[in-house]
Structure formats: C-alpha cells, structure tokens
C-alpha cells in the first residue's frame, strides 16, 4: 500500500444556492500523476482552491500527507492555479526571491529552476514584459522552487502555442519520472491521456468516475478501413453480422465497430471473398476523450 499524498472525504462547497463541490471523495497516492477532469464549472478549480487553503470549504475533510491541513504543508507543494500570479513590477528573479522567503528555500535554487524552464536569460526582466508562455514557465519555475513532493497544475498549457504545450508536457513527464506526485487539472483530454497514470472525472461538483488511464485505454474501439470502392465496402460491412456501427470519417475511411465476439480476421476474409481488397486497415485506439464524453452524457 503506497502512502497517501492527498485524501479528500465528503468535501462540499456551496456558493449561495449553487453547490460547486458536492461530497467529493478522492485519494491520491505517492507517485501518481493524477488527472482531474471535468467540463468548465465542474468544480475542479474550487476543489484545488480548498485543498490549497484559499477557498473556505462548507463541510468535509481533507488531509495532506495523512495529516490535518496546516499552512506549512504547502511549502512541500508546488502549485499554480489558473493564470500565473506575480508582482508585475518585479523581475522574475525578484518575484522568486519572495517565494524563496515564503517557502524557506535558499536563493541559489532560483537560477536552477530558471534553467529548468528555460527562462534563465530573461530572469532579470520585469514580469510585465513577459509573453504568456514565459509567464507560465515562470509559474512552473516557482512551483518547482522548493523541490516539492507534490506538484499541482491547473490548466498549465492554457493559452500556450503548440510548441509551448509540447515543452510543458515534456517537462511534466520529466518531473513525473523523478517520482513526484502530480495533480493535473485540465479539460484537454489528450493532454491527460499523454501524461497521467490515474484520473477522475467531475461533473457538477460530483465525482462520476475514477480509475487508471491504462485500464481505461486497454483494448480498442473498432477498426478504420478503406478501399478503392468505398460504397461497396460500406454496403458489405453493413450486411456483416456483428457490426454495431459504421461511420465515414474526414479521411473518407470507414470506422467500424463490432460486437465483442467478432474476429477481425474473419471479417477481412469475408470482404476478400466478396471481392473487396482493403488498402487501409487499422485498429482505433481508445481515447479518453470518447470515454469522457460518454461519461458526461450518461
């Protein structure tokens, strides 16, 4: 049994008549890269706000490192919530000096973390002159400052360009490889699928699913096929016993889903016997996105 990093039980938050978080239970173990998913307004950020001490809970409990929450625990946590927040008139380095003081970290760490996020050259410029990507990277540098056991990232790639997204993703993977626990709130499912080991889905403040990413992605979601005679292929596929659903996609290929007992070899044999030769056949990998949308619409 691995040790608990975070344990949430029955956590609830009301804003007037609205219940933003509703009796939430969650357990995050050491070394997990945990994705917190949910549409906008599902309570992800409120939950993170509560466990980080800036939002008052209405009821329920949470524990960090199996202890009742106190401020000094947060020195062992690196967190960025929503947009990067710094003193705009100070430089990146000056801002990090304040964080060093708060977290009781020696100032030598500043240059190290700035190098990790690739901001070393611009560390002395005022924060207000930074681009969004640089601000986001400074936020990550700040979160890494105390070499924290847990990293909490809320929409870390928000507003970044594709290159920036790839860099941040690579950074998260490197940090996770070092055995750190990461909590990643995002509505970019592709991102969660690429970096997370576990995930939970929130909807209207309630947890509707939790599990491991690997299990959720095992198996496949049918096949993608095409042929020179796509119309005939479609008719033949429709006539085949055990085919659940056929859809033509943007590449002019057919996405075919089967019942569980269908053997793909027999299906292929059937097509060849009917005079159709495939020029494309590929399994469709399961995606978190699809499952997520199914969960939400249920």
């Amino acid at each position: 049994m691995r040790e608990n990093i975070l344990k949430i039980s029955g956590l609830t938050k009301h804003y007037g008549k609205i219940t933003a978080v509703n009796a939430l239970d969650l357990e995050i173990k050491k070394g997990n890269v945990f994705g917190l998913l949910g549409p906008n307004g599902s309570g992800k950020s409120t939950t993170l706000g509560i466990i980080l001490g800036v939002t008052q809970k209405s009821s329920g409990e949470y524990q960090w490192f199996d202890q009742q929450p106190i401020a000094s625990q947060r020195k062992r946590i690196g967190a960025i919530l929503e947009s990067p927040t710094f003193y705009p008139y100070l430089s990146g380095v000056q801002n990090l000096k304040i964080v060093c003081r708060i977290k009781d970290v020696p100032q030598q760490r500043i240059d190290e973390v700035l190098k990790i996020v690739g901001l070393y050259e611009r560390g002395r410029s005022p924060f207000k002159t930074y681009s969004l990507g640089m601000k986001q990277r400074l936020a990550i540098a700040s979160a890494l400052l105390s070499d924290p056991e847990v990293l909490i990232l809320d929409e870390p790639t928000n507003g970044l360009d594709p290159q920036g997204i790839a860099e941040i993703r690579q950074l998260i993977l490197e940090i996770a490889a070092g055995g750190k626990t990461i909590i990643l709130a995002s509505h970019l499912l592709d991102e969660v699928q690429k970096v997370c080991t576990h995930f939970a889905v929130l909807k209207n403040g309630k947890k509707i699913f939790t599990g491991s990413v690997a299990e959720s992605l095992s198996g496949n979601d049918g096949v993608e096929i095409s042929s020179f005679n796509i119309e005939q292929l479609e008719e033949l596929a429709k006539a085949y016993k055990g085919v659940k659903q056929i859809k033509k996609n943007n590449l002019n290929r057919l996405e075919v889903q089967f019942d569980d007992q269908v053997n793909i070899l027999e299906f292929h044999q059937y097509l060849i016997e009917k005079g159709i030769v495939l020029n494309h056949l590929a399994y469709i990998n399961k995606s978190l996105e699809k499952q997520f949308l199914e969960l939400l619409s249920a």
Binding site: L52, G53, I70, A71, V99, I102, K103, S142
Partner: peptide
C-alpha cells in the same frame, strides 16, 4: 489592495504563508 488586484495574496497563501502570517 495590490495584493488583491495582482492576486498575489492568493499565491502567497498557496505558496505556504498562513493567513495569520
């Protein structure tokens, strides 16, 4: 008021400062 308009009070507390501090 700067701490509120820059939202730095929030980050200070997230970073490990207690409201008392």
């Amino acid at each position: 008021t700067n701490e509120y308009s820059f939202r730095t009070i929030r980050q200070n507390i997230i970073d490990g400062m207690s409201p008392q501090s």
